[in-house]
Amino acid sequence: MVKFSNSLVGFLNILILLLSIPVLAGGIWLSHRGSTDCEKFLQKPVIALGVFLLLVSLAGIVGACCRQSCLLWVYLLVMFVLIVLLFCFTIFAFVVTNKGVGQVVSGRGYKEYKLGDYSNWLQKRVNNNNNWRKIKSCLQDGKVCQSLQQNNETYSQFISSNLSPIQSGCCKPPSDCNFSYQSETVWIKPASTNSTDPDCDTWSNNQDVLCYDCMSCKAGVLANIKSDWKKVAVVNIVFLIFLIIVYSVGCCAFRNNRRDNSYPGWK
């Protein structure tokens, strides 16, 4: 049992070490090859994650396999902090994504989204100019709206489409604006409109502008984030259980190391 717990901790951390190599390599590649703001925005978190996984796995391997109680104690401390942070993030993700749902529009196959329907914390994040500049850069680089142009749909076909939240919020004006349809990303503003929605004035047929600065676009992004965070939270629960098991095995290995160090002649 003594050797088993140490060997198991070492084996699991070898897997983490192997995982850290492509993560770190990906971050370094982005730092040298990234040409857009979106790619540059990703490089620092990816490099930080790769370095973190590398250091933690090395501490676990050396601590378990070489019976270094000090390193194993540091490893367990980091694991404990990671478990607490992951637990808090999972609860936080469920709380901040609890509000917000797409609004059904009569005669439309897609939903439309209002920024005020989402939690205040999420609203503040997308209303921050620096944050939104980076998000908008990612949307433009991803050609989210340009992909719609390839469909060449008629108006009846377009309004029956099942648009994604981002496409619905960023690539067309809100239905309340009563714009005339020319193509998927070209709409003609009427001479007068009764709508008080500020997005009606924000819309532009310039393909680099469209509705990327609209409140509906920010709401569409939050709808997408909400869906992704819900999935991440579920995965986190599974990963959290895995970490707790690894942490428990690591605690056994730590006790074994201390006992062996206290009684060098014990077998």
Rank of each mutant, 00 (worst) to 15 (best):
M1N: 09
K3Q: 08
N6S: 11
N6F: 01
N6A: 10
N6V: 02
S7E: 01
L12P: 01
L12V: 02
L17Q: 06
S20R: 02
S20E: 02
P22F: 05
A25C: 07
I28M: 10
S31D: 08
G34L: 06
G34R: 08
G34K: 12
T36S: 15
L42A: 11
G50M: 00
V51R: 13
V51L: 13
L55W: 01
I61V: 07
C66A: 12
R67I: 06
Q68V: 11
S69R: 12
L71F: 02
V74L: 13
Y75F: 14
L77N: 02
V78H: 04
V78Q: 01
F80E: 08
V81Q: 03
L82K: 08
L85N: 10
L86C: 09
C88V: 05
T97S: 03
K99V: 06
Q103D: 14
Q103V: 13
Q103E: 13
V104S: 15
S106A: 13
G107I: 07
E112L: 05
Y113K: 01
D117C: 06
S119D: 09
W121V: 13
L122P: 00
Q123H: 02
R125N: 13
N127T: 12
W132M: 06
C138Q: 00
G142N: 15
K143L: 09
K143A: 10
L148W: 13
N152W: 07
E153G: 08
S160C: 06
N162H: 14
S164N: 06
G169Y: 00
C171I: 07
P173M: 01
P174D: 01
Q182N: 15
Q182I: 12
E184A: 13
T185S: 13
W187K: 01
S195D: 05
D197H: 09
D197S: 07
P198S: 07
P198F: 07
P198Q: 04
C200G: 00
D201Q: 14
S204P: 00
S204Y: 03
V209R: 15
L210V: 02
C211A: 15
C211Y: 09
Y212M: 04
Y212H: 06
Y212S: 04
D213H: 11
C217G: 03
G220I: 02
V221K: 06
D228A: 15
A233W: 00
V235W: 00
N236K: 02
I244G: 03
G250Y: 02
R255K: 15
N257Y: 05
R258P: 00
N261G: 11
Y263N: 14
G265A: 12
W266M: 10
